[in-house]
Computed example of a mutant assay.
Amino acid sequence: MSTEGEQRTIRCLVAKVGLDGHDRGAHVIARAFRDAGFEVIYSGLHNSPDEIVQAAVQEDVDVLGISILSGAHDTLVPKILDGLKEYDAFEDTLVITGGIIPDEDHDELYDAGVDEIFGPGASMEETITFVRENAPER
């Protein structure tokens, strides 16, 4: 039951890609998103870019949050973005990344299609506000 003026639930996939086994940040953001009223799906560890794309498409998410600390962001994130484009899901998905991504790599990721990068020290409020203001209308 929804009423006019009620906000729709934003569906988010919090994803860990590659061999990165550090998932504390992903769990923290997943919990913060749930507490903010978002519907959250967590991918678990060690997913390939294709597995992330498949999950995002099958779950019809509004937001894909990629948590990466392995240093492989420059190859893995563009593969995910290319996969979303192949499934015509790129335009309808807000893509954010978080983790250890050097400043000198930000422009390359933005050029590839990442909407925002949240590094260490980014507040939960900042991230939640960005998602609320930028999640695609469906």
Rank of each mutant, 00 (worst) to 15 (best):
T93S: 01
T129G: 06
R138W: 12
S48T: 15
I96F: 15
R31A: 10
I128Y: 00
T97E: 03
I29D: 01
A56R: 00
E59C: 04
P49Y: 02
V77F: 01
A122C: 14
A122Y: 14
F118S: 03
A26S: 13
N47H: 07
I117C: 02
D23Q: 04
S43F: 03
E39R: 13
D115H: 07
D35H: 11
V95K: 01
V77M: 05
L13G: 05
S48K: 14
D88K: 04
G119N: 11
E86A: 15
K85R: 15
A32L: 05
R8V: 08
D20L: 04
A89F: 14
I80R: 06
G18W: 02
P102T: 14
G21D: 11
D105P: 08
E86D: 12
G98N: 08
D20R: 08
V17C: 05
V77R: 03
V61G: 06
E39G: 11
N47R: 15
F90G: 02
S70I: 02
L76S: 00
D111N: 13
F38D: 12
D105Y: 12
V114Q: 00
I117A: 02
A89L: 11
G44I: 04
T9K: 13
V40L: 08
K85D: 08
S2R: 12
T127F: 02
N134W: 01
S67A: 04
L84E: 03
G113I: 00
R8F: 06
Q58H: 14
F90S: 13
N134P: 07
H27T: 10
I41W: 05
R34N: 15
T75E: 03
E91H: 13
F118H: 02
P136A: 05
D20F: 05
Y110R: 07
G37F: 06
F38H: 14
F90M: 12
Q58D: 14
E137Y: 06
I68D: 07
G5F: 05
S123P: 02
N134M: 03
F33S: 11
A30V: 14
A30H: 10
E126V: 06
Q54K: 15
G71C: 04
P120F: 11
R8G: 08
Q7C: 10
D35T: 11
I66P: 02
I68P: 04
S2N: 07
V17G: 03
H27W: 07
